[in-house]
């Protein structure tokens, strides 16, 4: 049984994880979160991560013209951290992403990306 809370709990076990949330990027709303958010306000970071995803999927250069070549994730690297935005693809209509904030020195980007991909897939795949 892997529900939303379980998914977030596992995301927080990724080395260096500081915070994780499931965000509805239609409106930039955090459906659920765990740990801390960059500004201390999960709703503000949800709105921010939604803006980033909208830029990535709606602005032409990033949205591929080939069918089904969809944006999978966005990584923002700052001096102190990694911000990973992973699309959660459901068959039914939803616009969701999994957002994980990692400490740059404790975290490993490749490991985190892989773990988050598996988490996002497991959340919606049998």
């Amino acid at each position: 049984m892997s529900g939303i809370d379980d998914c977030l709990r596992q995301a927080m076990t990724i080395p260096g994880a500081i915070g994780a949330s499931v965000v509805d990027y239609t409106t930039g709303f955090a459906l659920a979160w765990a740990g801390n958010a960059p500004t201390g306000d999960p709703e503000a970071s949800a709105a921010g991560s939604s803006d980033v995803i909208h830029a990535a999927i709606n602005r032409a250069p990033f949205a591929s013209t080939r069918p089904n070549d969809l944006v999978e994730d966005v990584v923002i690297t700052t001096h102190g951290g990694y911000h990973l935005l992973r699309m959660i693809r459901t068959d039914f209509d939803s616009r969701l992403l999994l957002y994980v904030w990692l400490d740059r020195h404790e975290g490993n980007l490749a490991v985190a990306q892989r773990r988050i991909r598996i988490l996002a897939d497991d959340l919606v795949a049998a």
Binding site: S2, I4, L31, I88, T90, D122, L123
Partner: peptide, 13 residues
């Protein structure tokens, strides 16, 4: 037929 995560996400939405 559904995963628990799907059910939760669908109902929340």
């Amino acid at each position: 037929h559904l995963t628990h995560g799907e059910l939760e996400l669908c109902v929340l939405g």
